[in-house]
Write a protein that binds this DNA or RNA. Structure first.
Lengths: 219, 219
DNA sequence: GATACAACTGCATATTTGTGTGGTTTTTAT
DNA sequence: ATAAAAACCACACAAATATGCAGTTGTATC
């Protein structure tokens, strides 16, 4: 079974620290169902080797010499958009986390993660999950909730569907006549709706209305 | 030690299924460091009981009769904004997950989660984490990456600082004269900048420019 | 010292917008 | 049934905008 390719998750490792890299490789290759198909000291060599190579999951250190792990994720995703990359890091620092996730990493673990949990995480990535330490998950969620909170504020600014349609058309760069034509109404009616939008949003120009509406998630 | 309040995480359970509720209560009360301080069949009774009660973490079923778990989260957060709520669910369904998170839940577990992992998750919540199954984490991350991808596209749309200033003033509802006064430049210069903005963003009106800029995170 | 770019100024003018005032008709909720 | 609310239409006019053209000045890169 150990050599049955159908049951193997093919893992590559990019990590400059020899001890950690070899430890990870041994752990992975020594576990049933996992196969370490490449170890790299630098992103550069990994990226050269990547094209055509059959890799399921990459473990990538974030603090690498030369091309950083974050840059590495971007470039790897350009070469193989489908590849799944799990970041490993010593820091649990806010900005770096988000940079990595935005770059395309699909999970984020701190290096002190115990071996069993690491293997589990690799499997989760392979199966479409996004393992992360729960501190990081909390940061991600906090951002979500902030965005959600803003959307609640808009109870006062209730626009009717028609008004939203008009406002949206405006934001697309249509002028009154074009909006009228698109909605099969007269220009004066468009004018009327815009008047009401202005009064509801407490604004006096298209730009201000559009800005407010977008920032509050109305359109 | 079992009765040392300093080391106890106080947990409340809201769950309509008797077997599950009692099972959870037994698990929690039977584990060192955890204390089940309340079990509720319905959100309504939980919410009545909540004010003044000392609860660290709430386990809340999402599919409750009467007030749903999601509504329950919202109301509980209104009463005790600091309370941490961990959602339990049978579904791992996209929209429900996001609704719950946006409502203020700070973690999300499927009911089949093994007892030990559940206890661990409660502790993580207590310590400020956001445990979630990694499928859910992936959904959250996917959304992030979509947002991030949009921001990359803007390389072509590079506006100078001055142009951004002007555009931002526009989005605040200022007209050309007001912008000119604010930036100590002439109206014609404002006009000039706006011309350049339009040509860089490929638009032909204030509204479209403002909409595009905001949606792409330029301003 | 040349080329490029950002930032600036000026003027002309057709088109578009914002706002005033005054309505009718159709849905929706009580 | 009746009162709101939403959606519709019209006319008028000052103010603001979009876009044409034609420049100067300062700063940075090659």
């Amino acid at each position: 079974m150990k050599n049955d390719k159908n049951y193997m998750i093919k893992v590559a490792i990019v990590e400059d620290n020899n001890t950690i890299r070899e430890g990870l490789a041994a752990l992975i290759s020594g576990t049933n169902g996992y196969d370490c198909v490449g170890t790299y000291i630098k992103c550069e060599t990994f990226l050269e080797d990547l094209p055509g190579k059959d890799i399921d999951v990459v473990l990538m250190d974030i603090g690498l010499p030369g091309i950083s792990g974050i840059e590495g994720v971007k470039k790897a995703k350009e070469i193989e958009p489908g590849i799944d990359i799990l970041m490993l890091t010593v820091y649990e620092d806010n900005s770096v986390v988000f940079e990595a996730l935005c770059a395309g990493a699909c999970g984020y673990l701190v290096k002190k993660t115990p071996p069993l949990r690491l293997l589990e995480a690799i499997k989760e990535v392979y199966e479409g999950g996004s393992p992360m330490s729960s501190n990081i998950a909390r940061q991600v969620i906090t951002l979500f909730q902030q965005n959600a909170a803003i959307e609640q504020e808009n109870e006062e600014y209730k626009l009717t569907n028609r008004e939203k349609e008009v406002l949206f058309k405006l934001s697309e760069g249509n002028n009154y006549q074009e909006i009228a034509d698109a909605l099969f109404i007269s220009v004066d009616t468009v004018r009327h709706h815009i008047r009401n939008i202005y009064s509801k949003l407490h604004v006096h120009s298209q730009s201000e209305a559009v800005a407010k509406a977008i920032r509050r998630g109305i359109i």
